[in-house]
Amino acid sequence: MATAREIMTGGTECVGEKESVLEAAKKMTGLGVGALPICGTDNKLKGMLTDRDIVTKVLGAGKDPAGCTAGELAQGEAVTIGADDRAEEILRTMTRHKVRRLPVIDGHTLVGMVATADVARSLPDPDVGYLIEALSTD
């Protein structure tokens, strides 16, 4: 079975932990993505920021997206996958943590992202079906 490096989408960009949520939203729009990894000044992954986070935790809470930083929305350590981890581990990790996107790291360096769409394109239908089912339940 394939590795994360073979399945991932490379060239993933980060939003800096000190960048505003407004800047992050503009970056998402420009890149045509719904999530960005949050990277610290030390270039280590601090978390993930999704379009849903922006809506529910910033706009829905009445906060100013220009005055709120991406780092404020980082929740603990990000769930990641190693670049050379096999597809079975991707499926286990996504299922266990109920995440639709996994940053792919090589050491401490972000090298890409595996999303459910990448899994769907790369793995057999039954594996994809189990993943989608697991992500769709509470």
Rank of each mutant, 00 (worst) to 15 (best):
D53T: 06
M48C: 13
K44R: 15
G32F: 05
V33Q: 01
D51N: 12
T50F: 01
D64L: 11
T50M: 00
D64G: 07
I54P: 14
D64N: 15
K44V: 13
T41A: 11
D53G: 08
G30E: 14
M28N: 07
K57C: 07
G32E: 04
R52D: 09
K44E: 15
K63P: 12
M28S: 06
V58P: 11
K63H: 15
C39E: 05
M28E: 04
N43D: 11
G40L: 00
P37Q: 09
T41Y: 11
C39V: 06
D51M: 13
P37A: 06
M28D: 10
C39K: 05
R52F: 07
A66V: 05
I38Q: 01
T56C: 12
G40Y: 00
A35S: 15
A66P: 02
G62L: 14
K46G: 01
A35I: 00
G34T: 06
K44F: 10
K46D: 01
G34Q: 06
L31Q: 03
L59Q: 10
L59H: 09
A61E: 15
G60Y: 02
K63W: 07
T29M: 10
A66Y: 09
G47E: 03
D64C: 07
V58A: 07
K46Q: 14
A35D: 08
D64I: 11
C39A: 12
G30V: 09
G47T: 05
M48P: 10
I54E: 13
G62D: 14
V33M: 05
T29P: 01
T41I: 12
L31T: 02
D42L: 02
G32I: 03
G47N: 03
D53C: 04
P65G: 07
C39L: 08
G47F: 00
K63N: 13
D64M: 11
K57V: 05
P37L: 03
A35R: 00
K44L: 14
V58C: 11
A61K: 15
R52V: 11
A35H: 00
M28V: 03
D64P: 09
G34W: 07
G40F: 00
G47P: 03
L45F: 04
M48E: 12
M48H: 08
T50C: 01
G30K: 14
M48V: 15
T29I: 10
A61V: 04
D64Q: 10
D64V: 10
K46E: 06
V55R: 14
G30S: 14
R52Y: 08
V55I: 14
D51K: 10
I38T: 04
T50D: 00
